[in-house]
Amino acid sequence: MRPPVAERETVAPEALRLPPRRDLAPYWLLLPTALYLGVFFVYPMSQAVWLAVSDPRSGQLTLEHFQRMSDDVHFRDAIRNTLLITAIAVPVQIALGLAIALMVNTCFRGHTMFLYLCAIPIGISDLAAGLIWLSIFIERGYLNAALGALGAIQQPVTWLSFERRDWLVSAIVVTEIWRATAIVMIILVAGMQLIARDYVETAQVFGASRWRTLLEVFLPLLRPSLQTALIIRTILAFQCFATVIIMSGRLVPVMAGESYFWYSLYRNANVASAYAVLILLFSGSITYFYLRALRQRELDVPR
């Protein structure tokens, strides 16, 4: 497995031996990316904010769109559901991803096969994942078929219905966990490869149990990767969209879904942008929170 670039910098200072260059070449090479992201990333971002706070006709600043957004019947539900799905799915993804990564890291026979197998959902879209789990949870789906074959039920159970909002949310959460644990796992496996074996061995020489070595040496060293996985997963969960639409239509409103409906159903780009800005605000604040809460303490082992 090719170690990522970061390791080469910390472990073998190979890159530092490169001839120091004072030329402008790297800046020229960076220019296309900077320009492109400026036009198609930074500009639309400012545009989103502008659409959300300006009147489309007069061009004056207004809070009217935010007002319409928050007056909408789905507004509270959308925020509540998005946060609920995130709050359940992300911790499970982190725990499961960490468990799989630790198992891969023991390098048991067949561990690479196991790694690739667990990585498969990375290539599956939220839309396809929604359709896959729909075939399980729908009324004539595999779950009911299995329960029926076991004799547990006589009539098919309607799992995905308006009356059972909690079942709907659970089905969405299960699908999210199935699909996105793979990304967490990959980030953590990559992070584990950066941890020098010496630390673990030293702990064991000094008589630490496996469990203590894991908790007090290994996991603290893994913190940067855990933090990345947590941020990436949370932000992506705030945008959950296709899985939710496939499973529930609009029975479980979420923020990205509302943005979609306001744009394509009501043809209102301003309120849709207000939702976009809301997602942006949520993502920004949670990232800030994670970076503060998980900041490396001074007494910790330096990496």
């Binding site: 497995m1 090719r2 990522p4 670039v5 970061a6 790694l115 690739y116 990585a119 498969i120 990375i122 290539g123 599956i124 879209s125 839309l127 396809a128 359709l131 896959i132 990304i183 990959i186 980030i187 496996v189 990559a190 992070g191 490869q193 940067p224 990767s225 933090q227 990345t228 941020i231 970076l291 990496r303």
Partner: peptide, 25 residues
């Protein structure tokens, strides 16, 4: 929609780690 994903993950399996393995420090 899943078929290409299955093929592709197999093709690029060696590079999966470097695609995602960058961290915030």
């Amino acid at each position: 929609m899943v078929i290409p994903a299955l093929v592709i993950i197999f093709l690029i399996r060696r590079y999966l780690l470097s695609l995602w393995g960058v961290t915030v420090r």
